[in-house]
């Protein structure tokens, strides 16, 4: 990022459903980003499980904005998240994922490089250290399996 360029502000948008136990891992990773997000928009897609305690646990460490979207499905949840977000870059993260500490820094860097870049995608490096056949299969086929 050149010093003359204005800093781009970043919203992280997370759509989630019934995974309060997993989202803590994502929040923890967002709280230690080398480039801290300007806001974290969480859209609860009408979960039965309660997120109250995990939201409370991270409110002091993350600029959390939480919403409930009753229309089911990822598209509706993401649209709500985009609508509620306020910043220039919108980064999406999934509730069952853990970004590396420099994730947001690396993901937003290219936007400074070329004003025509509208989207930046990263690598989803899976899959625990387990040596089960299924984990091996995912590793061998990564690229094809990313989603």
């Amino acid at each position: 990022m050149s010093s003359e360029q204005q800093r781009l502000t970043v919203s992280v948008v997370i759509a989630t459903k019934d995974r309060p136990h997993l989202i803590a891992g994502l929040f923890e990773a967002l709280a230690i980003q080398t480039l801290p997000p300007d806001e974290v928009v969480v859209v609860d897609n009408n979960s039965r499980a309660s997120y109250a305690s995990v939201f409370d646990a991270f409110r002091a460490r993350l600029p959390l904005h939480t919403f409930v979207e009753t229309t089911p499905g990822i598209p509706a949840a993401r649209n709500r998240g985009v609508r509620e977000s306020r910043h220039q870059i919108i980064a999406f993260a999934d509730d069952d994922c853990v970004p590396e500490p420099d994730w947001l820094e690396k993901l937003t860097e290219p936007f400074y490089r070329d004003p025509h870049i509208g989207a930046v995608g990263g690598t989803t490096s899976n899959y625990g250290s387990s040596d089960t056949l299924i984990e091996r299969y995912y590793r061998a086929d990564r690229g094809a399996m990313e989603s």
């Binding site: 997993l22 891992g25 993260a93 999934d94 069952d96 994922c97 853990v98 970004p99 590396e100 420099d102 994730w103 947001l104 690396k106 993901l107 860097e109 290219p110 490089r113 070329d114 025509h116 870049i117 509208g118 989207a119 930046v120 995608g121 990263g122 690598t123 989803t124 490096s125 899976n126 899959y127 625990g128 387990s130 089960t132 299924i134 984990e135 299969y137 995912y138």
Partner: peptide, 22 residues
């Protein structure tokens, strides 16, 4: 996004890990 005239950039250094077992 691509058809609206924007470029898509791949940045392999931006890494996210799944922690759900497959």
């Amino acid at each position: 996004v691509s058809r609206a005239g924007w470029e898509l950039w791949f940045e392999p250094a931006a890494v996210v890990r799944h922690h759900d077992p497959r």
